[in-house]
Computed example of a mutant assay.
Amino acid sequence: MRIIALSFALATTLLIPSLAQAAPNCTAEPTDKWMPEGAMKAKVAALGYERIKTFKVSGNCYEIYGYTKDGKKAEVYFNPVSGDVVKANIGG
C-alpha cells in the first residue's frame, strides 16, 4: 500500500507542472474556420511582435515565441479564428 501511495504522489508531482504549461483553450471552431497562417503571421507583426522564432499550432491555438517591440521575450497564444490574444507570457 505504501508503494502505491508513493507512486501516486510521484506521478501527481510530475503531472501537475505539465498541466500548468498546457496551451489554453482558444477556440472550439474547426480548423477550416481558422485564419490562414500567412494572415495570422501578418496580424502578429501588426500587433508589434518581432523576431518570431517559432510559429506553430498548439492545441486549438496559434502560438508564437518571439519578442515584443520593446525587446522582451514573448510566448503568446492566439485565437486562430479572430486573431485575438488569449494568453501572453512576456518576460524580461
Rank of each mutant, 00 (worst) to 15 (best):
I90C: 04
P36Y: 02
L19H: 01
I52V: 15
A5W: 12
I52A: 00
T13H: 02
I90N: 01
G91W: 04
L15G: 05
G92Q: 03
N25R: 14
F55N: 04
G92I: 02
D32R: 10
A39Q: 14
A11D: 02
F55P: 02
Y67I: 05
L47G: 08
K73V: 07
P24V: 12
A20P: 00
I3F: 14
N79Y: 01
C61A: 12
V81C: 00
I16K: 03
R2W: 11
C61F: 09
G92L: 13
I4D: 06
A74P: 12
C26I: 10
A42L: 07
I3R: 14
E37K: 11
E29T: 03
T13S: 15
M35W: 04
E63A: 06
T12L: 15
V44T: 08
A23M: 03
Y65I: 11
G38D: 10
G91A: 13
E63R: 10
A23Q: 10
A23Y: 14
T27D: 04
A23I: 07
A22S: 09
Y49C: 08
A39V: 02
K56N: 04
F55G: 03
A23W: 07
I16S: 07
A46H: 07
Y62C: 06
K87R: 15
P30V: 02
K56F: 00
T31Y: 13
A45N: 13
W34T: 03
K33S: 13
N25Q: 15
N25E: 13
A46M: 08
S58G: 05
G48V: 08
K41T: 09
P36K: 00
G66R: 00
Y65R: 14
P17Q: 03
